[in-house]
Amino acid sequence: MEQLDTPPTTKGPAAWFTGDVWFDVLAAPPAPSRLRVNRVRFAPGARTAWHRHAAGQALHVTQGVARVGTRDGRVLTLRPGESVWCPPDEWHWHGAGPDAFMEHLAMWETDTPDGGATWAEHVTDEEYGR
């Protein structure tokens, strides 16, 4: 058994997020594990940029109300205790609703040290507001 390092809370970089976002790495064990788990906190209206994960990503809302959008224009609303699966290579975004903070657990697998996400442009206000 090996205790994992717990890095400090990190402010989400502006290249990946609109608004104020903070995350804590909860699990990033050494290879051969591919598991990654982050606790992510979003200020009202904050959201990720468009991105995808080669092996997919699960999101589980722990506080607040989340929005999760896909390129086809669909936007889901999730409440505490609800989860969503974003399939491998599906372009998506996720963030808080406009009126309250939101926290979720982001879970995915990767074998790359950079986290394995492919990032694209920021989500527009129109896309967020659907």
Rank of each mutant, 00 (worst) to 15 (best):
A46C: 02
P44C: 06
A43P: 03
P30R: 08
A106D: 10
A27L: 13
E82N: 08
L76K: 01
G73V: 05
P88V: 05
P30A: 13
T62F: 07
T48S: 15
D24P: 00
E109K: 05
D114A: 09
T77R: 14
T6M: 12
A54W: 03
R34H: 12
E126N: 10
T124D: 03
T112K: 13
L59G: 15
G115S: 04
K11I: 13
L76I: 06
F42K: 02
R34Y: 05
R36G: 06
R71E: 13
H92T: 06
T112F: 11
V40H: 01
E121A: 14
E2H: 15
W108G: 12
S83E: 00
K11M: 11
G115E: 08
L76P: 01
A49M: 04
G97D: 15
V25D: 08
F101Q: 12
T77E: 14
T77K: 10
H51E: 09
F23H: 07
V84A: 15
A27Y: 04
H51I: 05
E103V: 09
T6S: 14
V65Q: 13
A54C: 03
V21T: 11
T110A: 10
G45A: 07
H53N: 09
R130W: 00
W50V: 03
R130E: 02
G81F: 00
T62S: 13
R47F: 04
E109F: 12
D114L: 11
A58V: 14
G56S: 07
T9N: 07
V37N: 06
T70N: 10
P44A: 06
A14I: 12
T9C: 10
T110I: 09
A31M: 13
N38Q: 10
V37D: 04
R47A: 02
N38W: 02
P80Q: 07
D89H: 15
G129L: 11
A28L: 06
W91C: 11
Y128N: 01
A43E: 10
P87K: 06
G64V: 02
H122N: 01
P88E: 00
T62K: 00
L4H: 07
P88W: 00
W22Y: 15
P80Y: 08
Q3C: 09
V84N: 03
D114N: 10
M102V: 09
V65R: 13
E126Y: 07
P7E: 03
A28F: 08
G81S: 05
W50D: 02
G129Q: 10
G129T: 08
R130L: 06
G69F: 06
L78T: 08
T118W: 00
E90P: 05
T62R: 01
W93T: 06
W93N: 05
E109H: 13
W93Q: 04
P98K: 07
E90V: 15
P87I: 06
